[in-house]
Simulated scan of single mutants.
Amino acid sequence: MGIKKQLGMGVMTAALGLSLIGGGTFAYFSDSEQTNNTFAAGILDLSVDPTTIVDVGELKPGDYVIRDFELQNTGSLDIEKVFLDTDYSVVDAKGDNTDDFGKYIEVEFLYNADKLDEVIYKTTLAELKEMSPEAVNQHIFYPTLGEKGLQSGNIDDLVVKFNFVDNGEDQNEFQGDSLKLAWTFNAQQATGGEK
């Protein structure tokens, strides 16, 4: 072997030895800990009791019906806003309607059963059907639920009065007709924040 090879082998042997010595003498303490975490979403659950608010027959112009119902927050999250979507269909018994029966059913949302003369908002079913759910919330539910909305586990009583408006004119076209009203209540959660 040549001198260059012997020197190269010596340098490599020395480097290998130093790395083994350095690696063998390098030691440290260690420890580890694991955490278990959970993210669980809450439940938004709005209930209406009773589910049939009004079912009445044999109405004539000038008649009215007062009904109360409850909005219940049975979920684990607070409800900030309640929106109401109104839809109805008219069954024209004789096929002679020239006007919308919903224009003659006036709806008064009242504060509570004890103060039936205190009207929160008054409109007709025809107008209510055309209102945006946000506008309904602002006029009807905000005055009763307030800024806090309907908190989890709470119940709010609402009273509504339906008037068959007597316009003082011939309303014979509505004889025998029926109006099927569908109210859909939609809840919106309160704004999220730090937990």
Rank of each mutant, 00 (worst) to 15 (best):
K195C: 15
A27V: 13
L18I: 13
L84Q: 12
K115I: 02
G153S: 07
N163F: 00
N36S: 11
A113D: 10
L158V: 04
G8E: 07
I155Y: 15
D68G: 09
L110A: 02
L84R: 11
D68M: 07
G168V: 04
A182V: 02
D87V: 01
T38I: 09
D100G: 05
Q175P: 12
K122Q: 07
E134S: 13
K4C: 14
Q138G: 05
N97C: 07
I120C: 12
Y121E: 13
S178N: 01
D177A: 01
F26M: 13
F162M: 04
K4Q: 15
N154Q: 14
L181T: 00
N37W: 10
V159W: 04
V11Y: 03
T52S: 08
G10M: 09
L46W: 12
G10R: 04
S32F: 02
T52W: 09
M131K: 15
L71M: 11
S152D: 02
G192F: 11
E106K: 14
S132T: 01
G146E: 01
S47V: 06
E70L: 14
V11K: 02
L116R: 14
N137S: 13
K60P: 04
S89E: 13
N154W: 04
V54I: 09
G95D: 02
T184W: 09
N36V: 06
V54L: 05
Q138T: 08
E106A: 09
K5R: 13
G176S: 06
L125G: 03
A113G: 11
D117F: 04
V82Q: 11
G168H: 00
L125F: 04
D157K: 09
T51M: 04
F101S: 00
D96Q: 01
P61D: 07
E58H: 06
N154E: 15
E134K: 14
I66Y: 04
K81I: 05
D92F: 11
P143H: 03
E134W: 12
G42N: 12
N36D: 11
S19Y: 06
L46S: 08
D78M: 09
W183Y: 03
S178G: 01
A14V: 12
I3Y: 09
F185S: 03
H139V: 15
D100W: 05
E70N: 07
A182P: 00
